[in-house]
Simulated assay, not measured.
Amino acid sequence: MNLRQKITEDMKSAMRAGDVKRRDALRLLQAALKQKEVDERIELDDAAVVAVIEKMLKQRRDSIAQYEAAQRQDLADIEKFEAGVLQAYMPEALSDAELDAMISEVIASVGENGSPKIGEVMALLKPKLAGRADMAKVSLLVKVKITG
């Protein structure tokens, strides 16, 4: 069963159980997936589904920060719940040690051809880390490792 089918089955389960909040969060996800398929005229594979979920998670984190700054905890709680539902479909996150090792490996491979550039390293890391690490954090780690 691919990720898209799992999301559909989970939504059906939420509907049967009467879990309105979970159903609504999954409907938002399905709508975003369908919109991406229609816009690009493709059928999404698991990697593309993870990319859509990652984008939605980033939007939720931004919204949570804004709602909390505006002291709207009720809205922040809704966004946190949706983020939790979305996070369940993401691949297992890498540990800090695994992430550090992967960054060092890529920097070493790029460094063989001269001094490594942050853009080159990030371009090689992004497909390997899709959904498994926060790319903003990865970017900071790469900058620290390259600049020393």
Rank of each mutant, 00 (worst) to 15 (best):
K6R: 13
I7A: 04
E9G: 09
K12M: 15
S13R: 10
A14C: 01
R16M: 14
A17F: 00
G18H: 05
K21M: 15
R23L: 15
A25M: 13
A25F: 10
L26E: 12
L29E: 04
L29I: 07
Q30W: 13
A32T: 10
L33F: 08
K34R: 12
Q35H: 11
Q35Y: 05
D39Y: 15
D39S: 15
R41H: 04
I42A: 14
E43N: 10
L44R: 04
L44I: 04
D46G: 07
A48Y: 03
V50P: 04
E54V: 12
R60P: 13
D62S: 04
Y67V: 04
A70L: 14
A70H: 05
R72V: 02
R72Q: 14
R72I: 06
Q73G: 14
D74H: 02
D77L: 09
K80H: 08
E82H: 12
E82C: 07
A83K: 15
G84S: 00
V85N: 09
L86V: 00
A88I: 05
P91C: 11
P91R: 04
E92N: 13
A93M: 03
L94K: 04
D96Y: 01
D96S: 11
E98D: 10
A101H: 13
M102N: 03
I107F: 00
I107A: 09
A108K: 12
V110I: 13
V110E: 07
G114W: 06
G114D: 03
S115H: 02
S115D: 12
K117H: 05
I118C: 06
E120T: 04
E120Y: 01
A123P: 06
L124M: 13
L129V: 00
R132K: 15
R132H: 04
A133H: 02
A136S: 11
A136I: 07
K137Y: 09
V138A: 06
S139P: 03
V142A: 01
I146Y: 09
T147Q: 07
T147F: 11
T147A: 11
G148A: 10
